[in-house]
């Protein structure tokens, strides 16, 4: 994650002072984090979009209650997690599902190389397998792993966002990688 010139707290204070457009900076910083957090937990990308949007709108509405001692990202993920649980409870659906996400990702994510269609197929299949394996990870391992790989956050920042000790983050990411490697070898 790029270093920000202004801290999250400074941006929050600016928004609270009436500079509403400044909130876009917080959206820019953390939309991908929330998106990736939800992506491996939902099987419907439209639902992912909706919850991402709802997360930020809710954060905006309750910005005055944000505890500046916490990491803004941690607060956002808490909101996202609660909305996800509410969504699942209302819909009565299981949290983990793979098929639709995989399918959407396949069409979305892997660029087709017209000149090398065979390679595209291999990459799609590989991508499908990776996502499926990640979705099978326990959440306590999956979240720090995704923050590390997708958001490329340093350990310390992950620890602060997840509000767990630094060594715990390292252990969980390492454990996630071990599991993924074992799964990959068993394919």
């Amino acid at each position: 994650m790029n270093r920000q010139e202004r801290t999250d707290v400074e941006v929050v204070q600016a928004v609270l002072a009436g500079e509403l457009e400044q909130f876009a900076e917080l959206v820019e910083r953390y939309e991908k984090l929330v998106f990736s957090f939800l992506l491996t937990r939902l099987n419907d990308l439209q639902e992912v979009e909706d919850i991402v949007q709802e997360t930020f709108v809710k954060a905006f509405r309750h910005l005055a209650s944000f505890d500046c001692e916490r990491r803004f990202a941690a607060w956002l993920l808490t909101i996202a997690r609660n909305l996800l649980i509410d969504s699942r409870r209302k819909a009565g659906r299981s949290i983990a599902s793979t098929n639709l996400v995989n399918e959407v990702m396949l069409t979305d994510s892997v660029r087709e190389a017209a000149s090398q269609p065979a390679e595209v197929v291999v990459r799609r299949e590989r991508f499908r397998n990776i996502v499926a394996m990640i979705q099978e990870l326990p959440e306590e391992l999956r979240t720090p792993f995704l923050m590390r790989v997708i958001n490329e956050l340093p350990y310390q920042e992950i620890a602060e966002v997840l509000e767990v000790p630094l060594q715990t983050v390292k252990n969980r990411i390492f454990k996630a990688r071990e599991i993924l490697r074992e799964k990959r070898e068993s394919l």
Binding site: F35, S36, L39, M105, D108, V110, F127, I130
Partner: peptide, 8 residues
Amino acid sequence: LRAGIDEA
């Protein structure tokens, strides 16, 4: 994984 999710 990063590329796929970035694209999505």
